[in-house]
Each structure stands twice: as structure tokens, then as C-alpha cells.
Simulated assay, not measured.
Amino acid sequence: MALEITYAEVTFKNESKSSGINSDSAAAPKEKTTPHESNHSFSKLLCTSLLIFLLLSAISFFTAFIKQVWSCCPKNWKPFSSNCYFISTESRSWNESEQNCSALEAHLMVINSKEKQDFITSQLRKQYAYYVGLSDLQGNSQWQWVDQTPYNKNVTFWHSGEPSNVEEHCVMLNIRSQRWGWNDVHCDGKQMWICEMMKIYL
């Protein structure tokens, strides 16, 4: 009889342990894997977002770097903003000056801001006058820039009293009373000139 009781107890205990292990083992993986999977997804999303951010930052940096560092002007041309300027050392008529600029894949200078006016006049020699790309070749007082930039009456640098002659259809930069300004002149007069072109980007 004692053997039967012992067997029954052993059997009961084994069944109890077995069922306890099964229920625990079924529940345990669920409790342990869910947070693990969630953390893994979050880490993956974070890494992906970080990589995209770094890639976009790198593209922006290299674009800015190329534009700033790898732009240049031809030899003897002066850089300013996004353009290059060539100041002649010989004199020609206005038409010849524009033809010379065209041969250099440029055009006579367009001045449409105070910054450009101040920059270029700081480079010029006071004893000379220089053709720029403004003219009234039609003779109807309609001033036009050679590159079709609109003529803005609010951004001009005429000397006092200029333009002064309806027979003078071209414009030059010269100095009066220690001040650089624009003066209308006859187009066949011989003056120095200034060419303008876009910077070269490599």
C-alpha cells in the first residue's frame, strides 16, 4: 500500500510540474520576445533615419563646396559674385568693344546694382573712361543692356545732368569730381571697355 501511495504522489507531482512547465514556457516567450522585437524595430528605424539625414547633409555640403571652391575666372579676369570681369588696356569704339567681348564669349558689362558699380569702379584707372553695355542705338531714349537685362531707372549711376545729348547713344563710365558715374557719348569715340561673363564651374 505504501508503494502505491508513493507512486501516486510521484505521479501527481510529476504531472503538476509538467503542466506548470508547459504553461510557463508558453507564456514566457511571449513576454520576452515582444519587447525585444519592438526595440529592434525602433533601432532599425532610427538607423535608417540617421543614414538618410547624413546622406542629405553630405549632398548639401558637396554642392555648396563645389559652387564656392570650384568656380574660377580666366587669367586676367577679375571675379565678383558669380561673374568675371575683363578691363581692357586699349581703346575701341563701342561696337568694336562689344565685338571684342563677344569674341571672348562675354559681353560689355551690365551694371544693375550698387555693389557691382562700387566693385568695378574700385578696379578702374581714374585717367580713363570705359564703355559698358548700355546703349540707345535706336535713338528713342530707350536705354537697353546688351544681355537684355531690363533697364531699371531706379538703379542708375548717371552723372548729374546725364544723359545730356539725344545724339549720344552709348554709355561709358568716367570720373568727375572724384566720383565715378555714367555719361552718354557718341558710339564711335575710342574708349577702354569692360567685359563680363559668368564664372566657370568645374
Rank of each mutant, 00 (worst) to 15 (best):
L3T: 05
L3A: 10
I5C: 05
T6E: 10
Y7D: 10
A8T: 04
E9C: 10
T11V: 10
F12P: 03
N14F: 05
G20P: 06
I21K: 15
K30F: 12
K32Q: 12
T33I: 15
T34R: 12
N39G: 05
S41H: 04
S41A: 13
S41I: 09
S41R: 14
L45H: 11
L46I: 01
T48K: 06
S49K: 14
A58N: 12
I59F: 15
I59H: 13
F61Q: 02
F61P: 03
A64N: 14
F65P: 11
Q68T: 13
W70C: 01
C73I: 06
K75C: 01
N76E: 03
N83F: 11
F86V: 06
I87E: 08
T89E: 05
T89F: 07
S91N: 13
N95T: 02
E96G: 01
S97I: 02
N100G: 10
N100L: 13
N100P: 04
C101K: 01
C101M: 05
C101G: 05
L104M: 12
L104T: 09
E105V: 15
A106R: 04
L108Y: 04
L108S: 05
I111V: 15
N112P: 01
S113M: 02
K114V: 01
E115S: 15
Q117L: 02
Q117I: 11
T121S: 13
S122A: 14
V132Y: 00
G133A: 00
L137N: 08
N140A: 14
W143L: 04
W143R: 01
W143P: 10
W145T: 02
W145C: 00
T149D: 00
Y151D: 00
K153A: 02
V155T: 13
T156Y: 11
H159T: 10
H159G: 07
G161Y: 06
G161K: 00
V166T: 08
E167F: 15
E167V: 11
H169G: 11
C170A: 02
M172T: 02
N174G: 14
R176K: 13
Q178V: 09
W180N: 13
W182F: 11
W182H: 09
N183V: 02
D184S: 13
D184M: 02
C187H: 03
K190D: 03
W193Y: 15
M197A: 06
M197V: 10
M197F: 10
M198P: 05
